[in-house]
Each structure stands twice: as structure tokens, then as C-alpha cells.
Simulated assay, not measured.
Amino acid sequence: MKNYKKLIDSWATTLAQPMQGNKEDNRAIMAYALHLVIFNIILTLSTLLTSIWLGVFATAAVALLASGSLRIFSGGYHCSSPVTCLLLTVSLFNIYGEGAVILTNYTKFYQVLGALIVIMWLALWFIIKNAPVETPNKPIREERKPGLKKKALMVWLFWTVILVILTVIDFNGYKQFILAIGLGIANQTFSISGWLKNKRKEV
């Protein structure tokens, strides 16, 4: 861990050198950005490699993409530690991937459509109401918030259009992916709902 921190600090110092402004502030920003990028690469690779091993790569990847693309702009709940985040992400998205495959055999058109309408409506509601959701260690400047909310709404619209297209073209043929997108969006909707934040306050 110490060697990892030293390596990050070294890279951050090098990258901060040509930047204008306070060198120490620039170094801290670059160190945080590098840590974030590296951690998210590890997170994604761990999730996808596990999904390959479990045989649910396609659906797990789609769920991760749907949730992750919305999370970039809407923010959301963060785990208390990187290890918890890693374990929870790998577990959840592989459960979603497996769930999409299993539910394909047990759900009918009207059931999937009803669930999607509820999920997408709730996602839209919480994006408008709460996004972008910030965390204590990652505050968002006020002037950036309207732009992030707008981009989150555009991502929501993108996935809504994709769901409509897949449903119209071949619902049964794309059913696994439709369910995977729905589960991914549901995951992020829960993350920005505020419920987890409120539960943490109650503990």
C-alpha cells in the first residue's frame, strides 16, 4: 500500500509540474484523479473477469455500463472503503447479470414492461430531485450542478430510447439485455434515492 501511494504521488508530481497555479493543490488533484482512474479500472476488470468465469459476461457488462454511465453525471452513494466498494460492485453486477439470464425464462412481456416503466420513472424522478448527489470527500461546485443534472437526464433519455428500440425490434431476442439495462438503472436509481444516506444517519 505504501509503495502504491508513493507511485501515485510520484506520477501526480510529474503531471502537476507543467500546470499553472498552486503546485501542491495541483499535485493533490492529480493524485486523486489517478487513484480514481486506477481504482475504477481495477473495479471494472474485476467485475468483468468474474462475469466471464460465471458465464454471464454480456448481461453483467450491459448492467454495469447502464449503471456506470448514469452514475458519472448523477453521482450517488459511496461505500465506506475501497475494498467494500470492490466486493459489493463485483457481487452486485454479477448477480444482475445472472438475474437477467434467469428472469428471461420466468417473466412475460407485460411484467418486464411494467417493471421498466416503474424503474425508469423513479430514475427520472430522483435525477430531477437529487442529482448530482455529492459526497463529503467529493463536493461539487454549485456552478457545475445544473450541467451534470442535464447530462444525467440525457443519459437517462439515451437508455430509455435503447429500451424502446430493443423492445420494438425483438423483445424476446433482446430480453436478457433489456432486463440487464433495467437492473443497472435500478441500481443507480437506488444509489441516488437518498435512502442509503438516510439509513447511514440513523445508524
Results as ranks from 00 to 15, higher is better:
K2H: 15
K2I: 14
N3K: 11
Y4E: 11
Y4L: 11
K5N: 11
K5W: 05
D9H: 05
S10R: 07
W11H: 03
A12I: 05
T13Y: 06
T13H: 06
T13K: 07
T14I: 07
L15I: 05
P18W: 04
Q20D: 13
D25W: 06
D25Q: 11
R27H: 04
R27Y: 03
A28V: 13
I29V: 10
A31Y: 03
Y32H: 05
A33I: 02
L36N: 02
I38S: 01
I38C: 02
I38F: 04
N40H: 03
L43V: 00
T44K: 00
S46Y: 00
S51L: 08
W53G: 05
V56L: 10
A58N: 11
A63P: 04
L64Q: 03
S67V: 00
G68F: 00
R71I: 06
R71V: 08
I72N: 02
I72R: 02
F73D: 04
G76T: 08
Y77L: 06
Y77R: 08
H78E: 03
H78W: 02
S80A: 07
S81D: 11
T84P: 06
L88I: 04
L88R: 07
V90G: 00
F93D: 01
G97E: 01
G99C: 01
I102P: 07
N105C: 04
N105F: 10
N105H: 09
T107L: 13
K108I: 13
Y110D: 11
Y110W: 11
Q111F: 12
Q111S: 15
L113T: 15
L113M: 15
G114M: 05
G114V: 05
L116N: 13
I117S: 13
V118G: 08
M120G: 09
L122K: 06
W125L: 15
W125I: 15
F126L: 13
I127Y: 07
I127T: 11
P132C: 09
V133M: 09
T135V: 09
T135C: 05
K138P: 09
R141N: 10
R141Y: 10
R144H: 14
G147K: 06
L148P: 12
L148G: 10
K149I: 15
K150S: 13
K150C: 13
K151N: 15
A152N: 14
L153G: 10
V155D: 07
F158S: 12
F158K: 12
W159N: 01
V161F: 06
I162G: 09
L163A: 08
V164A: 12
I165W: 09
L166W: 13
T167N: 07
V168G: 08
V168I: 12
D170V: 07
G173I: 03
Q176N: 07
A180H: 02
A180Q: 01
I181L: 06
I181P: 03
L183I: 05
L183R: 03
A186M: 14
A186P: 09
S193C: 03
N198H: 04
K199W: 04
V203G: 14
V203C: 13
